[in-house]
């Protein structure tokens, strides 16, 4: 939350006035609570956040280092862990660019044009957020699985989708589907079409207009969307779990690798791998906060807040 969005209803700082007297009524009781109530509520809220957010985060790192740095590093260097890292990267590298292209295309047609059914389209784009990740995985099993509609055809052509990398990528695409679009749509709607029309009247082509006029206007929003999309792509568990088949070293992503280690009671190793993802989450939060603070005026998310 940037400083100019701070609506704290507190009195302005009381500087010593040249007349030497302090305020007769110390606080503006009309629009705020007594100090003890304020501090009680602050303490309650922070205690709640600490208990439910900070403590779990802290425990990830503590548990990861419980058996020392040696165990920690070897858990990460292990071939299965490296394979999981590789697969997770591949899934994100497929999902994020695909959803990026889709997000820009969707935002372009929704923000720059009027057409019937637009509200419906926006709602449909948000749909994957309200679908349980397990169901998201299931839908692909129903299509590409051995008993699915398209399964036999793919099997005949020796293409593995389910229990293989394509299925994992598909599931990841599904669950990260709305992130970039829903950041760009309100942003581009707010920016209108004036800039583009100006560029077009100056003789720029459509692609040129997008590249040198629209893109610079939305670049921070785009980055913001990519950031959130990427975080989810790295961390998706439920959907990927359904389609993965859990083959160590082959179809395990990082979150699935954590599950396997955990179920084998290799707790320190599970938490070591988890700490990698937790670190990524922290970097994501830091970048996100930085973008919200520095480019608040160029992000739709910051406006909504």
């Amino acid at each position: 939350m940037s400083e100019n969005l701070d609506h704290s209803l507190q009195d302005p700082p009381q500087l010593p006035s040249e007349f030497g007297t302090g305020p007769l009524v110390r606080k503006n009781s009309a629009i705020t609570e007594p100090a003890w109530v304020r501090w009680l509520l602050i303490a309650l809220a922070l205690a709640f956040l600490s208990l439910f957010l900070l403590l779990p985060l802290l425990s990830v790192f503590t548990e990861a280092l419980r058996d020392g740095w040696g165990t920690y590093l070897s858990a990460l260097r292990e071939p299965d862990a490296m394979a999981a890292i590789r697969l997770t990267l591949i899934a994100a590298l497929i999902a994020v660019p695909l959803n990026l292209v889709f997000g820009v295309a969707a935002a372009w047609c929704i923000a720059k044009f009027e057409f019937r059914g637009k509200q419906l389209l926006i709602s449909l784009i948000d749909l994957p957020f309200s679908v349980s990740p397990v169901v998201a995985g299931l839908v692909y099993v129903l299509i590409f699985g051995a008993q699915g509609w398209a399964g036999p055809w793919f099997a005949a052509h020796d293409i593995k989708v389910i229990f293989a990398v394509p299925g994992i990528a598909l599931a990841t695409v599904f669950v990260t589907f709305p992130f970039i679009a829903r950041e760009l749509i309100p942003l581009m709607q707010e920016q209108g079409t004036d800039d583009e029309q100006a560029a077009l009247t100056l003789g720029a082509g459509g692609f040129r207009t997008f590249w040198s006029v629209t893109l610079p206007n939305i670049k921070w929003g785009l980055l913001y969307g990519v950031l959130l999309c990427n975080a989810r792509a790295f961390g998706e568990f439920g959907a990927v779990s359904v389609v993965s088949g859990h083959i160590r070293g082959q179809t395990n992503t990082l979150p699935l690798h954590i599950e396997i280690l955990y179920n084998e009671y290799a707790f320190a190793a599970a938490f070591a791998v988890a700490s990698l993802l937790a670190g990524l989450a922290l970097v994501t939060l830091a970048l996100k906060t930085f973008l919200e603070w520095r480019y608040a005026d160029q992000l739709a998310a910051a406006h909504r807040r």
């Binding site: 956040l49 957010l53 900070l54 779990p56 985060l57 425990s59 990830v60 548990e63 959130l228 975080a231 790295f234 961390g235 998706e236 568990f237 439920g238 990082l254 979150p255 699935l256 954590i258 599950e259 955990y262 599970a270 938490f271 988890a274 993802l277 937790a278 989450a281 922290l282 994501t284 939060l285 830091a286 996100k288 906060t289």
Partner: peptide
């Protein structure tokens, strides 16, 4: 900033933590 942690932290990590 931490309020958004549940959005950013992978669910499996949250689960074991």
């Amino acid at each position: 900033a931490f309020i958004d942690l549940p959005f950013a932290l992978p669910t499996a990590v949250a689960g074991i933590a």
